[in-house]
């Protein structure tokens, strides 16, 4: 049994841990909100760009598709952009997305190359001896589009140069505070399906029989403008979603840690009280026992003295 003093020291350290984790929890909570707000702010552009993109790409009589939208018949190399966090203490966040990715790509039929965004993912891939083409760790906490656009730029280059025939984005989709799903998205070639959104596209509600657009300078030039930016925007979105997920996961992990620490502190407090009470009790027993022994000794002494007095009479 630990002494009361030792227990007291442990209580103090557990309580200070709880204080730190509680602070981290609060910080993460506010960061989640900010990341979500940034995703929302970039949505108008994404929606609009997608509309224009599908519209132009679906034009009847387009002779050739834009290179970034052309599916290659033979896929020889695959590039995976993996988004993880730079820092730990985020509960199962990194483990989940990594496990998800390894399940998809560990036994892939063609060579897989990686671009890592986030230190944790880079370390794991490096340890496993995977081929990392580029690494973009240290994305700031409140990323601007410019902080992320170079990633999209690199991916587009890799695709156009033929070093990769398909590019996937693996990241964590933020559902809510308690749910974050590892997700995979095909980034390139950009696939424009005959989407429901296409039907919404008409130059104005009420203006039926869509007059065809005037293009300046031409469709290809417009696609050249939009497609790479749309790709960059998708990467930007994924980074923001991942950051929101990271902070949410960290918040939950820190909440659990705070709860556990509080619980532990309570249990230790009980133990401390017990130990303290026990030491008091044993002290009391000592004193009582000592007093008893003293009383007995004195009584015996007194008896002896009385006997001696009787004999001498």
């Amino acid at each position: 049994m630990a002494t009361a003093r030792e227990v007291k020291l442990r209580i103090r350290s557990v309580k200070s841990i709880a204080q730190i984790t509680r602070a981290l929890q609060a910080v993460s909570a506010s960061k989640v909100q900010r990341a979500i707000a940034t995703v929302e702010a970039s949505r108008p552009y994404a929606t609009k760009a997608w509309e224009v993109l599908t519209h132009v790409a679906m034009q009847p009589g387009r002779e050739h598709m834009h290179p970034l939208m052309t599916r290659r018949d033979e896929v020889k190399n695959v590039l995976v952009a993996l988004i993880t966090s730079d820092r730990g203490l985020a509960g199962p966040y990194n483990t989940n997305v990594l496990r998800f990715m390894f399940k998809k790509f560990d036994n892939y039929p063609v060579p897989v190359h990686y671009v890592t965004i986030g230190r944790k993912g880079r370390e794991i891939l490096h340890r496993r001896g995977k081929h990392i083409v580029a690494d973009f760790s240290g994305i700031p906490d409140r990323p601007k589009f410019a902080d992320v656009s170079q990633i999209g730029h690199l991916l587009v280059e890799e695709f156009l140069s033929g070093k990769a025939d398909e590019i996937y984005l693996v990241y964590t989709d933020f559902v809510n505070m308690l749910r974050q799903n590892p997700t995979m998205k095909k980034l390139l070639p950009l696939e424009v399906e005959e989407d429901t959104r296409v039907q919404d596209f008409s130059p104005a509600a009420g203006h039926k029989a869509v007059a065809s657009y005037i293009y300046e300078p031409d469709e290809t030039e417009i696609l050249n403008q939009i497609v790479p930016r749309f790709t960059q925007l998708q990467v930007f979105h994924a980074v923001l979603e991942s950051q929101a997920s990271e902070h949410a996961a960290r918040m939950v992990a820190m909440k659990n840690a705070t709860d556990n620490a509080t619980e532990l502190a309570d249990a230790l407090q009980l133990e401390y009280n017990k130990a303290r009470q026990q030491s008091i009790t044993s002290e009391m027993l000592d004193i009582a026992g000592g007093a008893e022994a003293l009383a007995q000794a004195m009584a015996a002494e007194a008896r002896k003295a009385a006997q001696a007095a009787q004999q001498s009479q």
Partner: peptide
């Protein structure tokens, strides 16, 4: 500032896409 020069756009302009 359109690709082929400045454009002033008023209501009821013809549908147009330009860089």
């Amino acid at each position: 500032p359109g690709a082929s020069g400045e454009m002033g756009i008023l209501a009821n302009h013809a549908p147009l896409l330009s860089t």
